[in-house]
């Protein structure tokens, strides 16, 4: 017996949607997947007409699908956006050099201008060199802090003031949990916002905020999108690993848990008497910072002095 798609009742169902458990056909899956992203964009008034937007592209599944879907929605709904691809070369041999090849292929396929900025050109240090210096213990801190700034600097070079990233619902739910576990209430409040911005700084948005990681993979699989799927060779840290495993287990028990966590995160309000760090500007580089010097400058100073951290 052929199962029919529960949405159109015509085509044969070929997948069970991870988000809802519905059995749907390929066409309906594409429709709901794309429409949910479109709804998210419209409801949060993410873009202005004629805006220039940079897609942070790593060559991984999230950013590859993001580039594909943004190009498609931009044409279908006439957002009127001018899209760019922006890639960061952290300088990790055997990982980033390969994934950048994927980004370059994407550039051809989607016909979007591409800009690559590298750690060594911005900071004088590649990740390979940093790992040689600090070992495998805090290297992810360096990479994360540097990437944030590197994206902003790349955006300035492209003359763009809006970056969109491929962070998906799983990433956001995981961050909500992490911030509770770490006791970081400032970030707990910020991490569910779809668009964050420091004053005068570049806006940063997450159109995949409500999109399940599994459905992104599914979409890429059916559309035969070309992406790079190797974990970074400098492995991720363990505490976050615990949160990730927990989230996967939650999803297995109740598929809506990911959305439910984001829903909770959006409802959280912090007591007024709780002191949150105030955002200022780094004295050295002018980047936004809650301390006198921004984290990147502190880390960089340590590297250059030969005293990590």
């Amino acid at each position: 017996m052929v199962r029919l798609c529960v949405i159109c009742n015509k085509e044969r169902a070929i997948v069970k949607r991870p988000k809802t458990g519905q059995q749907v056909c390929k066409g309906c899956f594409y429709y709901v997947f794309e429409t949910e992203i479109h709804n998210t964009i419209i409801d949060s008034k993410l873009f202005k007409k004629d805006e220039k937007v940079a897609i942070a592209a790593s060559g991984g599944k999230d950013s590859t699908v993001l580039a594909h879907v943004m190009k498609l929605l931009n044409e279908r709904y006439q957002y009127g956006l001018e899209l760019f691809l922006l890639s960061i070369d952290e300088g990790i041999t055997g990982y980033r050099d390969d994934s950048l090849e994927t980004v370059k292929r994407n550039q051809q396929q989607y016909d979007l201008p591409l800009k690559i900025v590298s750690y060594s050109e911005l900071y004088g240090w590649s990740m390979d060199q940093i790992v040689k210096e600090v070992g495998l213990k805090n290297n992810c801190t360096f990479c994360g802090v540097f990437r944030r700034q590197a994206l902003d600097r790349g955006a300035v070079m492209l003359d763009v003031d809006h970056i969109i990233t491929g962070h998906n619902a799983d990433d956001i739910a995981e961050t909500v949990l992490m911030n509770i576990l770490r006791g970081d209430v400032g970030r707990l409040q910020r991490c569910t916002e779809i668009c964050t911005t420091g004053d005068g700084c570049i806006r940063r948005s997450k159109p995949f905020k409500y999109t399940y990681e599994k459905e992104i993979v599914m979409y890429a699989y059916f559309k035969k999108l070309d992406y790079f799927s190797t974990e970074c060779i400098y492995s991720p840290n363990s505490y976050r690993g615990h949160a990730r495993t927990f989230l996967k287990d939650l999803e297995a028990i109740r598929p809506s848990a990911i959305i439910d966590i984001i829903h909770s995160g959006e409802a959280f309000e912090i007591k007024k008497e709780v002191k949150l760090p105030t955002q200022g500007v780094c004295k050295r580089c002018g980047y936004m910072s809650s301390n006198e010097l921004c984290k990147a400058c502190v880390l960089l100073e340590g590297l250059n002095r030969g005293l990590p951290k």
Binding site: L177, I259, S264
Partner: peptide, 14 residues
């Protein structure tokens, strides 16, 4: 706190 968050009860959690 973690289970209420996971069940979407963040609004009433406090």
């Amino acid at each position: 706190i973690i289970s209420l968050t996971s069940k979407g009860r963040g609004f009433s959690l406090p």
